[in-house]
């Protein structure tokens, strides 16, 4: 079981991701609705993994990955975004993300990415 922080500006999507994670035995220790809150909560909660949306108000997900990785170079972060273009995926991976899940997604895809990142 991993302690996971879920960052997405849509309450509905946070609920969906949380549901998938909890059904597979993980604990969602925090929820963030923008990138700034995600970085703040990462520092407070030290989760094992973060799921991160990209298009969010204030601070976007890729900038949040940079901030979190600057605090903790070992941070494990998976992007969950509707924007799947190659340039966006490369930006996320360069920023330090471990995987990139494109919305709409199946639960299995999220769980596979989480388990792979936790190995």
């Amino acid at each position: 079981m991993a302690r996971i922080l879920v960052a997405d500006d849509a309450a509905f999507m946070r609920m969906m991701i949380k549901d998938i994670l909890v059904k597979h035995g993980h604990e969602v220790v925090g929820e963030a609705s923008d990138g700034e809150q995600a970085a703040t909560l990462y520092q407070e909660l030290h989760p094992d993994l973060v799921t991160m949306d990209i298009t969010m108000p204030n601070v976007d997900g890729i900038e949040a990955v940079r901030r979190i990785r600057a605090m903790d170079p070992q941070a494990r972060i998976i992007m969950c975004s509707a924007m799947g273009q190659q340039a966006m995926v490369l930006d996320a991976i360069r920023a330090g993300a471990k995987d990139f899940v494109v919305k709409p997604f199946q639960a299995d895809r999220v769980i596979n990415a989480v388990e792979k990142a936790l190995q």
Binding site: S81, A82, Q85, M88, K103
Partner: peptide, 10 residues
């Protein structure tokens, strides 16, 4: 909206 626009953008 986010998913349709995101997929369209891709």
């Amino acid at each position: 909206g986010n998913m349709v626009a995101g997929n369209m953008s891709t």
